[in-house]
């Protein structure tokens, strides 16, 4: 559990870094909906996936 949780935290951390880097570098010249807008939407879906992966086996 511990190692798995830390792995997913690491994944999310990388996604967060990407959420800053990508829109302000490679996507900075794309003034269309499929630019930063789509990127952040996909980032949000990935973040939801990471949250789900972490709490999936939790039972109280």
């Amino acid at each position: 559990m511990e190692r798995r949780g830390i792995f997913w935290l690491g994944v999310l951390l990388m996604l967060v870094v990407l959420a800053f880097v990508a829109p302000y570098t490679v996507l900075s010249g794309v003034d269309r909906w499929y630019g930063a807008f789509l990127f952040w939407v996909l980032f949000a879906l990935a973040a939801i996936g990471v949250n789900f992966a972490i709490v999936r086996r939790w039972k109280d």
């Binding site: 949780g5 997913w8 959420a19 952040w40 980032f43 973040a47 949250n51």
Partner: peptide
């Protein structure tokens, strides 16, 4: 649209609650 990025990064912080 930059506000969307701000909000999505803020929202991803929910992982701290999950963890």
């Amino acid at each position: 649209v930059g506000a969307l990025g701000f909000e999505m990064v803020y929202f991803s912080g929910l992982v701290l609650v999950a963890f």
